[in-house]
Amino acid sequence: MTRSKAPARGLSDMPESGFRPDLVAIGFFLVVALVFYGSLLWTGYLSLTNSRLIPSYEIVGFDQFARLVATPRWRTACVNLVILGAFGIAGSLALGTLLAILLDRDVRAEGLLRSIFLHPLALSLVITGLAWRWLLDPVTGIQSVLRGLGWSSFHLDWLADPDTAIYALVVASIWRSSGLVMIIMLAGLRGVDTDIWKAIRLEGIPLWRAYAQIVLPSLKLTIASCIILLMADVVRSYDLVIALTKGGPGFSTDLPAKFAVDHFFGRANIGLASAASVVILGFVASLLVPYLLIQRKGRA
C-alpha cells in the first residue's frame, strides 16, 4: 500500500512484454464476482418473489420479509444469535485475553499450554459439537460423573431444556474460540513497547491496573478485530448447531443460517429462505464498516 508509484511508471516505458498481472487479477475477480456477488444479487432478487419449491421471478415486494418477521421460529433464531453472540464472544474474549496475559507472564511450558488452548481450532465444528453433546448429556455426561462422585444435587441438563439448550452452544463456542483470541492477544501483548513496561515498573503501578488501564487499552484495535472475527463466525454458525443440538429441542436452538438452509432445502420455501439470507447479509454488512475503519487505522 505504501509502495511508491515511481518505479512502476518507469517500467511501463519498457517494451510491452507479456507481464500482465491485470489479466490474471481480472480473470479471478470475474469468478468471485459471479459466484459471490452474482449469487448474492440473485438471492436478493428471490427474496422479493413468492418462490416456494420452484423459483419464481415475479416480484411481489417485501411480503417475504413480513412473513419472516411473523415467523416465531425466525425470531427464536435471531434471539439465539444475540445470546450466542453476546455470551459466546464475551466469554471467548475474557478467557482468551486472560490466558494470553497469564502466558505472557513468563510461564513454564508455554508452548505446550498454547498448543492445548489452540487445538480446538484444528478440529471440525462437527467434532466440537458431538464432543460437547456427549459431555453435556444429562444421562452419561458431566452431570452423572459428578453425581457419581457423591454430589447428588448437581444439575447440568441444559440440553434437555428448550430455555437453556442455547447455552450449550455458548460453552462449546467459548471452548473453540478462546484459543483464537489468546493467540491474537498474545501477539499483541508481545508487541507492546518495552518502554511502556519500564514506565509502569518505575511508577510502581500494580500489575492488574497496568493491564486494565494501560496495556489492554493500547490494544483496543487488536481487541476490536478479535470481536469482528468472532462475530463473523457466530453469524455463519451452522455445523456446530447441527452436531450439538440439531436445532432442538424443538426449534429452541435454531440460528439464522440454519433457518435459511432448512427453508432452502427441507422446507422448499426459497422466497422465505432468501429473505432470511438477505437479513443475515445485513448482519454481516454491519461488521464491514468497523472492519474497514480498523484496517485504515491499523495502516496509519
Binding site: 459471490f36 448474492l40 443460517a257 439470507s277 454481516v284
Partner: peptide, 9 residues
C-alpha cells in the same frame, strides 16, 4: 465475511 448459506441457492 459472506456466510456460505446466504449464497448457496
Amino acid at each position: 465475511f459472506v456466510p456460505y448459506q446466504c449464497m448457496m441457492y
